[in-house]
């Protein structure tokens, strides 16, 4: 599915002000940003999507025990809280291991996402697989897509 995101995500050049996009990318601090926006690379990374009747959040949380992940929702504000433990002491000895490279982040995290209006927090479901947690938030009845029938006279 995520190969498809190349299509869905903001097109890099096609039909848009590409110069501005490149500059925005290079000087991300310029201009106003959403009050809850975070820099890219914040742990855990998330993808968002929607179908006709639900909003889906995919949380990429490798090495996080799904049971220890605290998911809460108030109106359309989704909060993810948890802790990721990285190996500290060596497996055989009580000494600190010699690190050649440490790129992964560990410790406590919390992340807040603003979702589209009109999701039903009560009916939210979460499912974990291979370090990705899928959160399904059904849309409220009035937010769903409806077909309008044209009546013949």
């Amino acid at each position: 599915m995520f190969e498809d995101l190349w299509r869905f995500a903001t097109p890099q050049f096609g039909g848009r002000d590409w110069l501005r996009e490149i500059l925005d990318d290079a000087f991300q601090d310029l201009g106003a940003s959403d009050i809850r926006a975070v820099p890219r690379g914040t742990f855990p990374m998330v993808n968002l999507g929607a179908t006709d009747d639900a909003v889906y959040v995919y949380v990429f949380a490798p090495g996080v025990d799904p049971k220890a992940l605290d998911i809460s929702i108030q109106d359309n504000i989704l909060t993810l809280r948890g802790e990721r433990r990285l190996p500290e002491k060596g497996t055989e000895t009580e000494q600190w291991p010699v690190f050649h490279r440490r790129e992964r982040v560990g410790g406590q995290f919390s992340r807040v996402l603003t979702l589209p209006e009109g999701v039903d927090g009560e009916a939210t479901e979460a499912l974990s697989r291979n370090g990705v947690i899928q959160i399904k938030l059904p849309k409220r009845e009035e937010q769903r897509r409806r077909k309008i029938e044209v009546k013949a006279q």
Partner: peptide
């Protein structure tokens, strides 16, 4: 992913 899903925001692409 469910059928008919439209992505609106993606950090993992």
């Amino acid at each position: 992913t469910p059928e008919g899903l439209t992505a609106s925001y993606a950090e993992i692409r």
